[in-house]
Nucleic acid binder design. Structure first.
Lengths: 194, 194, 194, 194
DNA sequence: TATGAATGAGTATTCATTCAT
DNA sequence: TATGAATGAATACTCATTCAT
């Protein structure tokens, strides 16, 4: 959607790294400018405000995510395959951009900034909605168990996914997220088919 | 463990409320002093630093939680009953003190303060560990399925529990957490026994 | 009305001096703190904001002015005597606190700060209203000409008064405002009685 | 005097509007460039500094005013007629360009910039001087009262004129300045002939 | 004639903490 | 046990201006 200039992308990248290194509170214009090697005021030539920079991080992440989810949805794979693809994709993206996890899982810090909170919420929901839809389809064609509602199944699935990522982050990205993700999917799969 | 004076408890309580109302960033010595009705410097008579206040919040929550978990563990109930008790207990406590959820789920903000991060991590793990133990026992006496490892089952259980609470909080505590918790437990239970 | 602490009065005084020396734009927290010899943050222990400091200047000036005007109004002097007293009083106060003239005559700068603009407007109007009332009384008892309306007469009187003060200020307080004021009053007096 | 290019005039016009809308502080190069639709740096192709732009506003206003005053002076009308023409002319110009009033009456803000202050002072004096001359002539040929000095009479006249305009501006240009001006002139006229 | 990129100095305000009383 | 006064470091953001293209 939004196009970012090279400088803007550089700023977004540096911000994301700062988030990863020091948390959201670590993202200050001063640190940012020092990291990039330009003056503080120079940053304001590229973004109107700090909020816009943060929004930029999310926007870029979101559009990448959407693209992938769309592709999965249109892939013609079976429901279980689609769920597996979603799982793998999420863990792939996080492995590639570990810093982003700090942003995505920080509903709290954004609490006071309505715009940011909304965006984070939207990102969070996008997987959830897709998973819900896929599960419902799977239940219709009997490939997924129906004794537990789709709502509850997706709550369980997304909850596990999120907790795994949260642990990975808190561990300092110490384990192989993709391998653990595969393992988790195996078990989720088993639960889904009963 | 640690004993808090009346004043200290008052400060901890006010801090927790501030977290709930405005997020962790809302906890400043100034606001705290205004809320309690004493001077800013007075607060330093009771806590050496703001860090200690935050640690106080967690410590109090943790000790309360531990107590309950210990009781459950020693109750002689079956494994599934114990898990149900844990579920109910968590949701009960959160319903009673909704403010605390803001603290428990904000691993992020505490990230840069090693001491705080460790404490939050410990709290997060305490349920996880107990659930793990109970599940293992259940698997040993065949009351819980063994085709999925205890590690993975507990990840799934705690993940769902956390996500439900997170949603409740983001919704502004708009739904009945205990009822939704019961429903979730019903389904988790079904999954556990296969 | 409002009581100011010694420090607050010191800050108000320093601000007024800064206004006189460098215009309203010269009033910055930094310059203020340097002038007083305390830190910038110390100032915020005494006033919540810069706006409050500016409001403090006006408030102090206004209450002093009101006091004097009330006394004049209750003095039992004839209308023309009362008008003369008002004239003398205004020029006396300005001579005593030349700096304040910069604040009182700067409706413009306060334009964007509603609160300040209102206060300045109120101060400006307080003399005007009193003068209008006194003139009306004088017209009723024939001591002041009636062929020109009280509105117009007060417009003429206040206009001259303000222009004289404005010139005085722009001249760098180079002439004796009280002497010029007396001269002006003599002529205004003559016009009023025709 | 100075000739301005089309672009320069455009910039001066935009600046004047900004003054009217947001006060002198509202005149920033950024806002100016946005209003005109060119880049910030482009503005520096046409004016060496912001000071020059402000000087431009005043200079343009002044030359226009001078022209008119010269015409009046050379018109051969009687002294009282000339004064009436001056009155009407001032109110006409202000009615046509209300924005300019904000600039003319903001001696204060220009205070710290010697060059600007001087120009404003000169503008302010130009009417005053002309009025003074005309009154003196009138006093010489007995068409204007001599019991009050020409200095004082012109102070009173200009003071009333300025206050009326100031009120008009503060009222948001809510009343018909020309009508009120005519009324004021009627009374001033009466005072002048005694 | 115009622009995009950059900057140094400033601007009000916040915050955790210290210290003398 | 409490307070009033003070502070240094930070924080997001603004502004007039410069320079290479």
């Amino acid at each position: 959607m939004k196009k970012f200039t090279a400088r803007q992308q550089e700023i977004i990248k540096a911000s994301t790294e700062l988030v990863a290194e020091q948390g959201i509170q670590g993202v200050t214009i001063k640190k940012l400018s020092k990291k990039i090697g330009i003056s503080e005021s120079a940053i304001y030539r590229h973004f109107d405000s700090k909020l816009d920079i943060l929004l930029g991080i999310l926007s870029q992440f979101r559009s990448h995510k959407m693209e992938v989810l769309d592709k999965i949805q249109g892939s013609g794979a079976t429901e279980l395959e689609q769920l597996e693809m979603i799982f793998k994709e999420r863990f792939n993206q996080f492995t590639q951009y570990p810093a982003i996890t700090a942003v995505i899982f920080s509903e709290d810090i954004f609490q006071n900034e309505k715009e940011l909170a909304d965006e984070v919420y939207a990102i969070m929901n996008s997987s959830l909605q897709l998973i819900l839809i896929v599960i419902k389809k799977g239940q219709n064609n009997k490939s997924i168990r129906s004794d537990i509602s789709a709502d509850q199944l997706s709550l369980i699935i997304v909850g596990a996914l999120r907790l795994l990522v949260a642990r990975w982050r808190l561990s300092g990205f110490a384990f192989d997220l993709r391998r653990e993700g595969d393992k988790l999917w195996g078990n989720i799969n088993q639960i889904l088919v009963n």
